[in-house]
């Protein structure tokens, strides 16, 4: 923590000091950097995002180009033990129609990451908002929680079908086929996965709002908005982080299920989940086809989890001081 010598850390969490803001975030970053897992996660996440964003541009092979003469190529490593059908042109191999697996993994990652992050953030924002409001304002609790029950009970498949029916063509006309479907999928996944977060946040808020420091804040007339942002939200952060991590994985996998049913992206649009699902029947002959997308999903989720852990530690003043 050499950077901090010029600025001796103030007592953490002290809300009175006006200049503390910048230093506080500096502290958070310093604490975050000391968390090895979180830094590894962050590096991986930046790496995989760059791989997916910049990769296709550098690699130059279109993921949907068919090269049927070069189908079923194995990854280049197989050349080490003398497997014949490998090619430097396709280092990750090709699929059963001769599409380049590396290009597909990159392109798939773009969509999966975009869908995963957006849907997860949407779900977390809705869930946290409803949870906090329901937990804090007893008048709204009943109504919001019955709404949550309703959403929990709705079957996903008919819901998506109805959304497709009502909104696909207008969205397609307004944003184009791909963006329209993207919006539809993200909203579909987002509005069907916020309920757990809402229930958890509400449960925690119900307990927290009876704690002494919240009662004290309220008794001196702190407005509700401030009580929520200042005292409640920071204390429900850790379950929200867990929900976010799990939600990212769920969103990526749900997208593949939705596309698989023909309710998502066009069939020639690779996503990680779809690549994995397509590869499962052939996983004995071509294990690499399940390994690439499987690893990509798992490691991304793992990275996000570690970042979440690191953030949680970094944002907790009690830990940060130590």
């Amino acid at each position: 923590m050499t950077e901090n010598t010029a600025n001796p850390p103030l007592p953490a969490g002290d809300p009175t000091a006006p200049v503390v803001d910048r230093n506080q975030w500096w502290d958070v970053w310093a604490q975050f950097r000391s968390h090895k897992g979180a830094m590894a996660g962050l590096i991986f996440l930046v790496g995989i995002t760059l791989f997916c964003l910049v990769g296709p541009w550098l690699w130059g092979i279109d993921p949907t180009t068919l090269d049927i003469r070069n189908k079923d190529l194995r990854p280049i490593v197989n050349a080490l033990w003398g497997v014949e059908n490998v090619s430097w042109a396709h280092p990750f191999g090709t699929d059963n129609l001769g599409r380049d697996i590396m290009a597909q993994t990159m392109q798939g990652g773009r969509i999966s990451l975009a869908v995963g992050w957006t849907a997860m953030i949407l779900a977390i924002v809705i869930g946290t908002f409803i949870g906090v409001v329901a937990g804090y304002f007893p008048r709204l609790d009943g109504l919001l929680m019955r709404l949550t029950d309703l959403f929990l009970a709705l079957p996903l498949l008919p819901l998506l079908l109805v959304m497709m029916l009502l909104f696909r063509d207008p969205l397609r006309a307004a944003f184009g086929p791909e963006e329209g479907i993207f919006i539809l999928i993200v909203i579909g996944i987002g509005i069907t996965s916020w309920m757990q977060t809402a229930r958890i946040v509400r449960g925690d808020v119900l307990a927290l709002k009876e704690r002494e420091y919240v009662l004290a804040a309220r008794s001196i007339g702190t407005p509700s908005r401030r009580v929520i942002t200042r005292h409640l939200l920071p204390n429900v952060l850790s379950p929200i982080m867990v929900s976010a991590t799990l939600g990212l994985a769920t969103a990526i996998i749900t997208e593949s299920a939705v596309s698989f049913l023909g309710l998502g992206f066009p069939p020639d649009y690779p996503t990680w989940g779809k690549l994995l699902a397509d590869a499962v029947p052939r996983m004995v002959s071509f294990p690499e086809r399940v390994i690439w997308p499987g690893l990509a999903i798992s490691l991304t989720v793992l990275a996000v989890n570690y970042i979440g852990d690191g953030l949680r530690d970094a944002l907790d003043p009690r830990i940060r001081g130590q």
Partner: peptide
């Protein structure tokens, strides 16, 4: 699965003769 493979292949051939193809699969 087979129909989606067919769609991909046929799209490729039709694009080679200058016909633009958008694919859609329906449950």
């Amino acid at each position: 699965a087979v129909r989606q493979d067919f769609q991909a292949l046929i799209k490729d051939w039709w694009e080679q003769i200058g016909i633009g193809v958008e694919l859609r699969n329906v449950d």
